[in-house]
Design a binder for these strands. Structure first.
Lengths: 218, 218
DNA sequence: GATTGTCAAATTGTATCCAATCAGTATTTG
DNA sequence: CAAATACTGATTGGATACAATTTGACAATC
């Protein structure tokens, strides 16, 4: 199945192809939380043996996408309200701190790119998938000016792991759509000012404004 | 080799035993940065096949302990000054934020335990290994009152990955030894006050006071 | 009727075998 | 003699085979 993609990616290891495939399935929500992740069928579907699938599953487990239960099938990780709060606070702490660097390092070109990404984000409000993608691009545009590779990687990891829940939130209450452009605009102002404290504070507040309870019916 | 430990851990999977073994070797510094991590000899040494070793290596790679080079032997990750700064800033951001929760949640019993851990830390100043262990315990005593499991886990991960470099620093300049008790004491005061802002600020400053340049000769 | 025991299907965990890849060295060739 | 090339040893990457474990169903028992 999907021979062309397989051929195109032939140079990369089977494991990383499998990992990328599963990551996309989970991020997109096609494999929802709780879905069993069984090695054998996936291996057959992608035309590889179980071994690289196992390793891919473990890799995803380390990123938090799946949960491995010893001697039982792994499952797509299901996050509860507490877990989401946890992840969002982590991201607030890290991405807030990252903005200190960004505010001090960003140049005219960076500002321009962020403004462009912001416009695209505004245009993307009609479609959930489009919006999520544009939202990623906007945040990444800012993080490009944070010279801390591991920090940025961790921030992205968290964003990706929580992506299905952002999608749910966008589809459920439209509030997220409405607020978000103004917030992102204020955020950009703060970064433009070059004041680390202000940039950090703005990013923190922006991320923590995400209301988990919209998704999880009490 | 080491039959008793093997028997004791028989209930757990070979993979996790191997992972734990390697993690300890690396954290302790017995396997220094740059050391090749070859599957076959380790497998033989521990009396298992190469497969669980492979998976253990990959698990460690996801935590940052080793670096996998495609089709070449993996190596123990070697961090440069920039990487260490990166990791310490991440920890500052996260553990600082965690202290907001701790300051608000800690009770009399928690304070007491932290004070005890602080005394033990002070006693441990003569020996590097002892000190590192006591330092871990002190920080964990505080983090026990942060109700954000994933955040705490990530903080610990960073602390463990940087452990060999802390050891180097302790052995090299003794400054870290000297400053640290006072700092930790001030930190505990801030937590005791219950003020989130103050607790966060104190923890951040404490962590960022770590001077990387002591290790890396310019 | 509830509980326990046993068996079978599904799935993971581990071992072993073979192919692919890379680093370094020897060797050829201009 | 220098540069390109071909070989060799070491090591990983992947596939297949098999053992161990768990789950659930169904039957036996109290």
């Amino acid at each position: 199945m999907n021979k062309y993609a397989a051929v195109q990616d032939q140079h990369r290891s089977a494991q990383s192809r499998v990992a990328e495939y599963l990551r996309q399935e989970i991020r997109s929500g096609r494999m929802a939380g709780g879905t069993p992740v069984v090695a054998a069928p996936i291996a057959e579907h992608l035309g590889v043996s179980r071994m690289p699938v196992r390793e891919a599953i473990q890799q995803l487990a380390n990123d938090g996408f799946v949960t491995i239960r010893s001697n039982r099938s792994a499952v797509v990780t299901e996050f509860g309200p507490g877990d989401i709060a946890d992840l969002y606070e982590m991201r607030a702490a890290l991405e807030g701190y990252a903005m200190r660097h960004v505010a001090q390092n960003i140049d005219a070109r960076g500002i321009q790119e962020a403004e462009l990404a912001l416009m695209r984000l505004d245009q993307a409000r009609e479609d959930v998938n489009w919006f999520v993608s544009a939202h990623d691009i906007y945040h990444d545009a800012l993080l490009a000016y944070c010279p801390r590779a591991q920090m940025v990687e961790e921030i992205r990891r968290i964003r990706h792991v929580t992506e299905p829940y952002l999608r749910l939130n966008l589809r459920a209450g439209l509030t997220a759509f409405a607020n978000t452009t103004d917030e992102h605009s204020e955020l950009l102002d703060a970064v433009r000012s070059g004041e680390p404290d202000r940039a950090e504070d703005e990013m923190r507040r922006h991320i923590l404004r995400f209301d988990v309870r919209e998704i999880f019916p009490a």
